[in-house]
Nucleic acid binder design. Structure first.
Length: 139
DNA sequence: GCCAACGTTGGC
DNA sequence: GCCAACGTTGGC
C-alpha cells in the first residue's frame, strides 16, 4: 500500500466532480509531465491518495483510491502519456490547508511544499497519518 | 494579475 | 549535448 497526492485546479476538475463519478471512478488524464507519469506507473489498485485543490482553495479536501493501474491516456494519441483511474473514498471532515501544512514541522519535506508544481506526487506513511489527524479523520 | 520556478523545445 | 527561449503552473 502506497500513498499519493493528486492536485487539481477545482475550476477544471474538482472534488465534487470526482465524487459525482462514484465508484466508477475517472481517468486522471491530462498529465503531461514525466515525473508525474512515472509516479502513476508505480501505483497499484487499492493505493490511497489525497485530493488537493490548487490555486484559489489550496487545501486537501478528500481521499481517493486508485481503481485501475496506469493505462494510455485517452485524451491524447501520444503513446508517451498514461494515467490511472481514481475514485472518491471520503471527504476529509476538516480540509487541511497549505498554510496548515507549511506550519507543521513534520510536513516540511512534503513534495507539496518542496515542489509545488508537481501535480502527482508520493506521500510518506507518516505524512499520511499526520494529515489524516489534522483533517479530523480517525484511523 | 504578477512573477518565480520549473520543464520542454529546438537551434547550434 | 548544451543552453537560451519559451510556455505553464501555482503561490502570493
Amino acid at each position: 500500500m502506497k500513498f499519493w497526492l493528486f492536485k487539481s485546479e477545482p475550476s477544471t476538475w474538482s472534488w465534487n466532480d470526482q465524487v459525482a463519478k462514484g465508484d466508477a471512478g475517472e481517468e486522471w488524464d491530462g498529465v503531461r509531465n514525466y515525473q508525474a507519469r512515472n509516479f502513476m506507473r508505480e501505483m497499484t489498485p487499492g493505493d490511497l491518495g489525497f485530493f488537493y485543490h490548487s490555486q484559489k482553495d489550496r487545501e486537501i479536501v478528500g481521499i481517493v483510491e486508485v481503481s485501475a493501474p496506469a493505462h494510455p491516456d485517452s485524451t491524447t494519441d501520444d503513446a508517451r502519456w498514461e494515467c490511472v483511474d481514481i475514485k472518491a473514498v471520503e471527504p476529509l471532515p476538516a480540509p487541511v490547508t497549505l498554510d496548515a501544512i507549511k506550519a507543521e514541522p513534520r510536513l516540511a519535506d512534503m513534495v507539496l511544499v518542496r515542489n509545488s508544481r508537481l501535480s502527482v506526487q508520493p506521500v510518506t506513511a507518516e505524512e499520511w497519518d499526520v494529515i489524516c489527524t489534522m483533517g479530523g479523520k480517525q484511523g
